[in-house]
Structures are given as C-alpha cells and as structure tokens.
Design a binder for these strands. Structure first.
Length: 557
RNA sequence: GGACCUGUAGCCUAGCCUGGAUAGGGCGACAGCCUUCUAAGCUGUAGAUCGCAAGUUCAAAUCUUGCCAGGUCCA
C-alpha cells in the first residue's frame, strides 16, 4: 500500500478541494515527527485561515484502519502509520518480490538502445574516460531492471587523426596495448617539435580514406589491439557491449552520400567559398559564432560530423524505444548541432546523458601529455589494497573477494558523485574503504548475510508490532523508499540516486545492527523472527541496489 | 564576446527540478565502544555568512536577475 496516496485520498475526502494533495505530502525531518506530513501553508491560502488553525482543526478528523494518529504540530499535520501495517507491507513485499523489489516494471515490453564509452581507441582508458562507461553501464542495468529490453553500443572512432598518429608512430613495429599510451605521447611530442611530420600523418589518413588496402590493414591492427585491450579492462569490470560500431564503415558505405542528398533537399546545405559542404543551422539559434556545420572537405569527402550524423540516424532507425547516448560535457554543443541536423531531416534525436570531467589535483587529465591515472592502475592498486585488508583479517589472500571489493570501490567512487559535477580524483581518497564507499555497503551486506547464515532459517511471517526501536523504523523507512530511488534514477538517468540511497540503507542497517541483537539468547524468539525478516529484507535490497551500479555483493568479507 | 554546467564546514558530498519544521552524510581532527550476530563498524565533540548582492514570497540552499570564481564548448 502506498500510504502517501492513501493520505492524499483522505485529504481529498475531508477537504473537497481541487488540489494535488499528493504533491504536498512530505516526509518529516525526524521519525519522532511521524511518517508523513502535510504542511498547511498552501491550504491557508485556499481556506483563508491561519495554517496552525487548519492543522489543529483538521488533524482529529483523519481516521483509517492503517492510521495510528494524525497530529497537529504548528502549521503541520503529522501522520503516524500503524507500525504493524507499515512493517507488514514493506517486508512482505520485499520477501515476495525478492530481487525484483524496487522494479516498477514500466519498461516491460519496451526497448532501449544505449550508446556509451565510445572513447578514442588510442590508449588504455584513464579514469576520466571510465566515467562514461560506468555511468552508461549503470543506466543499462537500471533500464534492464525496470524491464526494458536493452542493447548497448560502442561507437569506435577508428578514422581520426589520433589513430593516424599511432599508425605513423608505430611504423613497422608491432604495437601492444600497454605500449600504446607511451607511443601516443612520444609521437605527439615528435610532431610538436617537427610540424613537418604532420603532413605524413595526414597522408596516411588520406590513403586510408581512399581505401588503400595496406593502410587499412595498419589502422585495423592498431584499432583492434586497442579495442581488445579496452574491452578486456571493461570486461573485468563486468561492463559489456552488444555492438561495436565502427566509424570507418561510413567511409566505405554510401550512407553519407545519402544523407547529403537528403540535406540538400531541405535547402539548408550549401557550398562555402572553400568548396566544402556546410549546413546552415541558423533556425536553431545554437550558441555558436557562425551557424554553419561543416560536413565535407572541398573534395566532398566526409568529415566526422557527417559520419556521426549518419551513425546517429542509423541508431535512431534502429532504436524502437528509448535511445540514449552518454557524452562528456565537452560534447554538449556539438551534440545539439548533430541533433539539429537530425531534426531537420525529421529524425528523433537520442537523449543525451552528460557528465563533467574527472580532474587531478594538479590539473586536467590529458592523454596527449600522459598525465593521466589509468583505470587499470586504479583497479590494480585497489585490488592489492583489498587483498592486504583481507590478509589482515583472515590471514590469507582471496583474490575473488579482493576483486569484488576493489571494483566496488572503483565504481562507487565514480558513481556516487552527480553526473554534472567535476570529480577531483585522488588515489588515496579513492582507495579508502571506509565511510561512503562501495566496500562499506558491501560490508553491510556481508554482515546481514552472516546473521542469516547463523540463523539458518528465516521465518515466513512475524509479528511486527514487536519492532519498536527507532533504528528498526529508520531502516524500514529506507527500505520502503528504494523503489522511488530507482524510479528517480531511471527518470533522470542518474545512477547517483541509487548510490546515495543504498548508502542510506547501509547506514540505517549498521545503526540497527549495533542497537538491536538478533541471535542473542536474550532476544525473544518472536522478536528474533521479526528482526530476521528485517535483516533478510535489507540484504535483498542492498544486493539489488549494488547490482544496479554493477557492484558485486560478496557473502563474506 | 556568447552559451551551458558547477560553487554547501579544512577537504569531499546530499538536498535545488517540485520553496516549508533543527541544511543530511562522509574524509580528516579529537574523545569513547570489541569475553555479545564481522571494528571495512558504531557513539559523541569541534567544524556552515549554503560564492556575493538584490528581488519574488507568509516562508529561499531551493525560484528570478546581476555579479564573482572554477569547469566545458563556440567550422
């Protein structure tokens, strides 16, 4: 039962006003003040009475089987739900739905296409780039949880100058994934010192675009090495892709020509004084200096934006429902330009999820300059730290658990911060496993599981009237709010909402853990049963919440 | 020059969309708690002009405007 809605119904019955009461109902700041509250300020205006007076007059009128009492406190009416009903409702729902608890199932029968990661295939990914993959992967998990049939795409920019630089830098040498970053840094320095070399790089690119077989081979070799390496790292983090879409296919197929033809029909495509094809986007009043998007070179070969428009149109055609793309904030304006082109051709543009950059304490990360924290290094450090901690506690290493903890720390560290905020990355802070971290939540789960293991059996039913501690109530309230958190996370494509909420649950559980015993002999068997169900419900919700962030929940740690 | 995002204790962060009760957490610091279900935990103390200013409102961290600072972008 949704008590908020029930209260709104009661209000409607009493007041007969045409107001959306559901909107007005809130949760009071502390549990002693009740479970839900109605501020009477808005009513004061409608009824032309002081809010305190309204609260006083109205409060005694509310009666219902599930309502313990409604109490006026200043300008508020505080509603207290009958404890047994509240616990019964939430716990039985969790126990019944198990790992599906929290899913609105609103995506059932619907489809979603998500493009994420799509980083330059020029080196091992740094933690800044990883933010895209982590956010994207979590969004995919959330959508799947809500019932969407979801497919994941990675757009591989295998045509750009960066790849040409690598091909040029590699020469005849065979490159390895781990050597790519150094190669990239070196060749950038070399070209900087001797700008003449850039011509060679562009001639390689030119050869590629003209379909020169040997050059194609060289590009492919490097890109394959890189994608394979990246996929391995992301795969280690359990981030998988259904499709790798290569930009280069738009060099060989005729899609870009078709798009140009379509654009020509709109009358917005023209040739500029240099002979390039440019799209006039004036009508969209984008905040650019000039309202033109350059689509081709003078020789009419495609530029990146044109290939990207072609790809985005292909995706729009393919997507049967939601169509989402995760992009860095640097792509915001450019994305609007691409969108406007799609709009002009009457295609539905994807929804973008933007995120801000990850910074280092001493400045920005730059692959070109090599001052980056590589995701794989972060992962490695985290694993060895986790293993040390395990050794400290259990005397011997356990790689599987260490990885679960380490990757939980890596993912949580990146996902707990709102997408649009810059993250200042500091390895020491990120490797702290205490406080608001993935391991803290995993630890909480392991504690709950430990109790359940020792209890051997969780009863099917219990008398929830016996649960009278504040910490029990607080925990229940947090569990009850989980579906809303999932809904919010889905609506705004914000995994952070879930990260924050399961932290609340974990904190509430740990408080409960310290103040309420379950297995001690001093605990009445009936109370023990009720508490065990609360523990079991917590473990279910924590595991689900973690899984939506792509984080494993080890049974022991 | 223009556009978007961000600004909350020494540091990090929630709340802002949808205004409402005492601005939640965490790190770090300090003081406690393991012969009781995992101390990767818990409790307590200190620490906040919610960037600044004005406006709207009975009520502003939240809405509006201007300014300042950081991030991002503008063939």
């Amino acid at each position: 039962m949704d008590y908020k809605e029930e209260i709104a119904k009661l209000l409607k019955k009493e007041l007969k006003l045409n107001i959306d009461f559901l909107q007005l109902i809130e949760v009071p700041p502390t549990p002693e003040m009740g479970d839900y509250a109605l501020p009477c300020f808005t009513l004061a205006k409608e009824l032309k009475k002081a809010p305190q007076q309204i609260a006083n007059e109205l409060a005694p009128l509310f009666k219902s089987s599930w309502l313990d009492k409604a109490e006026a406190k200043g300008p508020y009416i505080n509603f207290f739900i009958k404890k047994s009903c509240f616990f019964e409702d939430v716990i039985s729902k969790i126990q019944k739905e198990k790992s599906n608890y929290g899913s609105s199932k609103e995506g059932k029968g619907k489809n979603a296409l998500v493009e994420h990661t799509s980083i330059n295939p020029n080196a091992s990914p740094h933690v800044g780039r990883a933010r895209n993959a982590l956010i994207g992967d979590s969004i995919v998990r959330i959508l799947k949880f809500q019932g969407y049939k979801t497919e994941t795409h990675y757009f591989v920019n295998d045509v750009g100058k960066q790849i040409a630089m690598l091909v040029y830098g590699a020469g005849k040498k065979k490159v390895t994934f781990s050597g790519l970053l150094q190669l990239y840094v070196d060749i950038n320095n070399k070209v900087k010192e001797n700008p003449e070399l850039e011509k060679e790089v562009f001639s390689l690119l030119n050869k590629l675009e003209n379909g020169d077989k040997a050059t194609k081979q060289k590009f492919k070799a490097i890109v394959d090495t890189c994608i394979k390496g990246q996929a391995k790292i992301f795969g280690e983090l359990d981030i998988k892709y259904d499709f790798f879409d290569y930009e280069s296919q738009y060099l060989w197929n005729k899609r870009t020509d078709e798009i140009l033809k379509m654009l020509k029909k709109t009358g917005k495509l023209s040739e500029d004084e240099e002979g390039r094809m440019v799209l006039n986007q004036e009508e969209y009043s984008l905040p650019t200096k000039a309202p033109f998007l350059v689509l081709t070179r003078a020789d009419k070969t495609s530029l990146y934006p044109l290939r990207d428009i072609a790809y985005t149109i292909d995706k729009a055609n393919r997507a049967k429902g939601k169509n989402i793309v995760v992009l860095g904030e640097d792509q915001k304006l450019y994305f609007q330009q691409v969108n406007s082109a799609l709009d002009l051709l009457k295609f539905k543009a994807p929804e973008a999820v933007h995120y801000a950059f990850v910074l280092l304490s001493d400045g920005k990360m730059s692959t070109r300059q090599g001052n980056v924290v590589l995701l794989e290094d972060f992962m490695k450090d985290a694993v060895s730290k986790a293993n040390e901690e395990i050794k400290k506690r259990y005397g011997k290493a356990d790689l599987k658990t260490a990885k679960a903890i380490a990757y939980g720390a890596v993912k949580y560290a990146m996902l707990k911060v709102a997408n649009e905020k810059n993250v200042t990355f500091d390895m020491d802070t990120a490797l702290n496993f205490e406080g608001e971290t993935g391991p803290y939540i995993q630890y909480t789960y392991a504690r709950a599981r430990s109790i359940l293991r020792k209890a051997k059996k969780v009863p099917a039913k219990a008398d929830y009237c016996l649960l009278s501690a504040d910490s029990e109530k607080k925990l229940l309230v947090a569990l009850c709010a989980f579906p809303e958190a999932v809904k919010a996370a889905e609506a705004h494509y914000r995994p952070t909402d879930i990260a924050q909420h399961i932290l609340d649950i974990a904190q509430a559980f740990n408080e409960f853990y310290h103040s309420c015993q379950c297995l001690s002999d001093c605990v009445e068997p009936k109370l023990r049963d009720a508490r065990l169900l609360l523990v079991s419900s917590t473990s279910i919700v924590l595991k689900t919440g973690l899984s939506l962030l792509g984080i494993d929940a080890p049974e022991k740690m």
